[in-house]
Nucleic acid binder design. Structure first.
Lengths: 278, 278
DNA sequence: AATGTCGTTCCATTATGTGGAACTCGCTCT
DNA sequence: AGAGCGAGTTCCACATAATGGAACGACATT
C-alpha cells in the first residue's frame, strides 16, 4: 500500500575512494558533518556505525564524534539496533523550507491550470547540480497519500524535467554538468552516455520541450518544458506525466504546447514577482 | 548532557540569548551553524545579514562565515535582495527522512481507517522537546494541495496532539518539559500557565484522550489520543480535527473512542514491528 | 578460554573556527 | 558634492574545537 520510495539511485556521496588527498569540501567541519548526514539519509538501507565508517572514509574516532553530534542535534536518531536513521528535526526544517518557497508559490496556480487541461499528474522540479528536486506536484487521482515525490531527487539524465532544464543551460554550465554525470541504467531506454544525452538535449532545445520515453521507469512517460530566470540562477521545469497505456507519444505531442505555455507563464511571473535578476 | 533542542518555541527568542553565550555548548561548531540555520528557516519574514546578526548574537565575522558555509552547502540560498532563504538541499533531506520513517509507515493504515470512520482530517504527530512535529495526515476533502502540515512544528500546550502526548509522560519528564514551556496566546482559550495546562493534562490522563477546544486556532477543534512505546523514547499522538461549525464537542466525545482504539493499535504495532525497547 | 568484530573512549597534536578591527560599498542628509 | 552613516565583506593573530591513532570494553563465535 503505500509506498513511495522510489528509487533515485543517486549513489554519489561518500567519496570513499581517495583517502589520501581526499579533497575535502570547502566548508570544513560543517561540510564533513553534512556529508555524513547525507550518506545516512540517502542510503537505501539502515546503516550501522561501521557501514558509515567505510562509506565516509573517516577515521573511527572522528566519525563517532560527528555522528554523536548529529544525534545530539536531532538530525539523526539511533535506534536500539544501533542503526542510524534520519531525525525529526529534518522534517521540521523542510516544512518551513517548502512552505516558504517563493518559486513554488508563484508557480502553483499554473500547475493547477495545467492539471485541469491535461487531467494527468503535473510536476514542478528545480535543477540542483546533477539532480532535479521535485518541489511541487498536482496529482491526477487523489490516490492514497500525499507522500508525493516532494523533495525527492532524481537524476537529470533520465527525467523529462531534468532534460528540459538541461536543454536551456548555457553551453559552459551544460558541459560542466554533463561532466559530473555518472549514468545508471534504470530502464531499457535510459541514456547511458553524455553523447546520447546531448543529442536528445539538442532536439529538446529546438522543440522547446523534452520527453521522458520510459527512461526512468517503464510504463511512465512525460513531457516537460524548461523554466529559468534571466541569470540562470534558477533553472527548473514543469511536466505532465502519465502511464504509457493511457498516455501515448502522440498525446504527449499534443500536451507539449500547454506545458510550454505554463512554463513560459511561470518564467514571466518569476521575473515579475521575484524581481528581475535574483 | 541532555540538551536536545533546548528552547525555541519559535516566536521571539531573539533576546533570550542575551545572557552571554547562552545556549550553545552542546555540539560546538555544528550546533552553532544549525542554530543559525534554524533562525533563518523558522523566521516568518525574510532575513538580511544584520537581522540574523542580532537574532543569533554572534560576532559579525563569525556569522558571516557561518552563513557562507551554509550557502555553499545548499542549505541556504541568498536572493539578490541579500535575504537568506532555505535551500533545496533541505527538501531533499526531508523527503528521504519522511519516506523512510518507520513509525509513519506503521501508523499509516490506522490513520486511513480512522479517517474512514470519522470523515474528518486525521493527524499523526510526534513529541520532540516542547513541540509536536506533524508526521503524517489524511485529509477530509482533497482540497488544493498536499502542502499539509507535514513537518510543521506546533507547541505542545495548545494542540490536542501535544496534550495527549504530554498526558502520558512519566512525571519527571513531564515536569522537565513543562519547565521549558513559554506560553503564547493564540486564541481566547489558549492555556497560559503550566498550572492550567497541568489540570487539563490530569483530566486527559484519566479519560485517555485530550481535546483542543479552539486553543490554537479559533473555529478548530480536535480530539487526540496518546501513543508511546515501552521506554517512552517515542511519544506521539493521533487526532481527528475539524471546523467548529461541523464538529461539536459532543461529536468529539463520540469520536474519542475510535481515536483511542487507533492509538492503541498503533502502539501495539510499534512494539511488534519496531521491536520491543527502542 | 581464545579470537575477532564492533562500538566507544582517551588524549596529545594541530587544523579550524573565532571575533575584533579595518575596509568597502551604497545610500541619505545637509 | 561631500560628509556621514549603516550594511555587508575581508583580514589575521589567537585559542578553541576537531582530529585520528591507539587502547578499551562488550558481545559473539570457535
Amino acid at each position: 500500500m503505500n509506498e513511495t520510495d522510489g528509487q533515485t539511485t543517486d549513489r554519489d556521496d561518500a567519496r570513499t575512494a581517495s583517502p589520501a588527498t581526499a579533497q575535502n569540501s570547502g566548508t570544513g567541519t560543517l561540510g564533513k558533518a553534512l556529508s555524513v548526514l547525507e550518506t545516512v539519509v540517502t542510503s537505501d538501507t539502515p546503516l550501522r556505525f561501521s557501514d558509515i565508517l567505510v562509506l565516509s572514509g573517516q577515521p573511527r574516532g572522528t566519525l563517532h564524534r560527528q555522528l554523536s553530534h548529529l544525534v545530539e542535534e536531532g538530525l539523526l536518531v539511533q535506534g536500539r539496533d544501533l542503526c542510524y536513521e534520519p531525525g525529526l528535526r529534518l522534517l521540521k526544517f523542510a516544512y518551513r523550507s517548502w512552505s516558504k518557497n517563493q518559486f513554488r508559490a508563484v508557480a502553483a496556480p499554473h500547475l493547477r491550470k495545467l492539471h485541469e487541461e491535461t487531467g494527468e499528474t503535473v510536476h514542478l522540479g528545480v535543477l540542483r547540480g546533477t539532480e532535479i528536486i521535485y518541489v511541487d506536484k498536482v496529482e491526477s487521482r487523489q490516490t492514497v497519500r500525499m507522500e508525493s515525490q516532494i523533495g525527492n531527487a532524481s537524476p537529470v539524465y533520465c527525467t523529462g524535467l531534468g532534460k528540459a532544464a538541461l536543454s536551456v543551460l548555457p553551453p559552459g554550465r551544460l558541459a560542466e554538468t554533463l561532466g559530473k554525470l555518472t549514468f545508471h541504467r534504470f530502464t531499457a531506454n535510459t541514456h547511458l552516455s553524455a553523447a546520447s544525452l546531448k543529442r536528445d538535449l539538442d532536439e529538446a532545445r529546438l522543440r522547446g520541450y523534452a520527453f521522458d520515453r520510459e527512461e526512468h521507469e517503464t510504463e511512465i512517460r512525460c513531457v516537460a518544458a524548461p523554466i529559468h530566470d534571466a541569470g540562470f540562477d534558477l533553472v527548473a521545469g514543469i511536466s505532465v506525466t502519465g502511464p504509457a497505456y493511457r498516455v501515448t507519444m502522440e498525446q504527449l505531442e499534443i500536451w507539449a504546447n500547454p506545458v510550454r505555455q505554463a512554463a513560459m507563464a511561470i518564467s514571466e511571473d518569476v521575473e515579475i514577482r521575484l524581481g528581475p535578476g535574483r
